[in-house]
Structures are given as C-alpha cells and as structure tokens.
Nucleic acid binder design. Structure first.
Length: 268
DNA sequence: AATTGTTTCAACCGCGGCCCC
DNA sequence: AGGGGCCGCGGTTGAAACAAT
C-alpha cells in the first residue's frame, strides 16, 4: 500500500506547534477548507506534513472542540462505550460532541483505567445495559460493577474488519443489543453481540427496528434539514471547505433525535 | 531550593482500508 | 484486477507540568 512519507523524510518541522503556525492553519482552513491534507501545508505555507496539520486541526484547533476537564457524566459515558466498543476511540468520540478521539484515549489511559482498577468487581457482571435515549446504563454506579470490554468479545479482533462499516453510522449503540426494561422504565440495551453481526454487511432496516426508529424517516430528515447545505455553501466560497454534514455532531444528534421521535437531545 | 519520581497530554508513527486510475 | 495515493485510526512516545521527598 502506498504510504505517505513521514515528516522527517521530507525535511518538515516536527514537535509542538507555535501560535503563529496555529493561526496560519486556522486562517487557511477558514478560507479554503481542508479537502486535501497532503497539499494543505504547502498551499498554506506551513513546514509541516499533512498528517501533522490534520491532527492539529482535529485535536486542538477545530472551533467546536470542548476544552476543559471531563465531567463525571462524560467519563461514565466513555466507560460505557468502551465496554461496548473496546478501543474504538473515534467511535466513542462520535458520541461525545466536542471531544476528540485523542483526548478520550488520553483520559482513558490516565484517569479511567485507574478509576476502574480501583473498583475491580469481586464478581464480574455478564451484561451491562445502555439506554439509547439518554446514554445512561441500567447500572448508574459504573465503578461499582465493572467488567472489562473483553467480556463481551472473544478477542480484540472482533472489532476489526466489518466493524468499520458500522462506525460510520454509530447512532447510539452500534451493536445488536437486546432491549431490556430497566428499573426506571426506559429501554436498555445489553451489548450481547453475535460474531456474525461484525461479519455481515450493515442492515439499516434491521438496525432501525432494533432501535425503534425508522431509518427512512431519518434519511428524510437529513435531506430536509438545510443546515448541512448552508454550512457547505457558506464555507465553500473558494471551492475548498469540505467539513460539512458528517462532522457536525450536533446536526447528526439532532437528526437522530428527530427520527426517533424524541423531543430533546440526549444528555452527555 | 534542589532533586527525583510521577502524571499528563500533544504529537508522532505506522498500519489498514478506501478511493481512484 | 491491482497498484498507488491518501485519510483516519489506534498505539506509543517524550517533553512539560506537577508532586513528593
């Protein structure tokens, strides 16, 4: 496979970004977008490789990035999603608006793993539920009854291959979980995943049935919602900016909520 | 105040996979 | 069909910040 040469092979700068570089990158992306990361640094006059620019933008400079410490709710969400998805940080990040995969990965390694290790269960639980509507589990004390992600999957390879097909959807639970009734009468989903799910192509209708919403209506809402188009047009004066629609999590959350008939966005 | 140990997190690296020719 | 170009992802690194002695 063709691989982009790394920075030192072409004599580009590495290491921490300066405020001046940040400003150059921000200005360029605001004007022209980032349809081609590889060409961007040359066009912007940055002595960086495209990967470095992309990482800087996605993890630090993007305007919708939420700074500051993670709330307890966010941490719990990460723990729950990690239990379901394993180390699929980008998929987890998709459920946490304003948070990046890198940030979540760091928080996991620095805080959450320790937190969970301190609360290792005496008896591992077999399943954990997740509420599709507000992303809370049946077990509200996440640290009291922790079971490792590996409990739900036989090997880490279970997440590879066709799992990527699912990650593009990632509405709330991208697994074939079985609904159960929780004590607060909300519907919960146990992450019991049949291996065949990951091997088969994604069935939107089956998935929408599972989550009790209509994928067709979701699709209609997406087409009827003008924000995506406006966003593209407003930023595309020079034929550049491409980060429309799919990267706007607020938009997608809204789409999902509308399609599923909910009146409020999920709490995070 | 100086030194050492620990933690944090931005950034790098390499791989897998998608897309296009 | 298959090879090259590129993007995105996840693992890892290392410097800076902080805490302990």
């Amino acid at each position: 496979m063709g691989r982009a040469p790394c920075c030192d092979k072409v004599g580009l700068k590495k290491g921490p970004w300066t405020p001046e570089e940040d400003q150059v990158l921000i200005n360029f992306i605001h004007l022209y977008g980032h349809s081609n990361w590889r060409a961007l640094p040359k066009q912007a006059g940055l002595l960086r490789c495209g990967k470095s620019c992309r990482l800087r933008w996605i993890n630090y400079l993007k305007p919708d990035i939420k700074r500051g410490n993670f709330s307890r709710e966010e941490e719990d969400t990460i723990i729950q999603l990690h239990e379901m998805m394993g180390n699929r940080w980008s998929a987890i990040a998709a459920r946490l608006p304003g948070r990046t995969d890198n940030e979540i990965k760091n928080v996991w390694h620095t805080h959450l793993k320790k937190r969970l290790n301190q609360n290792q269960p005496k008896k591992p639980r077999k399943t954990r539920g997740i509420n599709v509507n507000n992303i809370t589990t049946t077990t509200t004390t996440a640290e009291s009854n922790w079971s490792s992600p590996q409990e739900s999957y036989t090997t880490s390879e279970d997440f590879s291959s066709s799992a990527n097909e699912v990650s593009s959807v990632d509405l709330s639970t991208n697994d074939t979980a079985a609904p159960t009734q929780s004590s607060d009468n909300s519907m919960d989903y146990n992450p019991i995943i049949d291996d065949s799910f990951w091997e088969s192509s994604f069935d939107y209708n089956a998935f929408s049935e599972l989550l009790d919403f209509d994928y067709e209506s979701l699709h209609e809402v997406k087409q009827e919602t003008p924000e995506t188009v406006d966003y593209c047009e407003n930023n595309n004066n020079n034929g550049g900016l491409q980060y429309c629609g799919d990267e706007n999590m607020e938009f997608w959350l809204d789409v999902f909520v509308q399609a599923s008939g909910e009146s409020e966005l999920p709490e995070f």
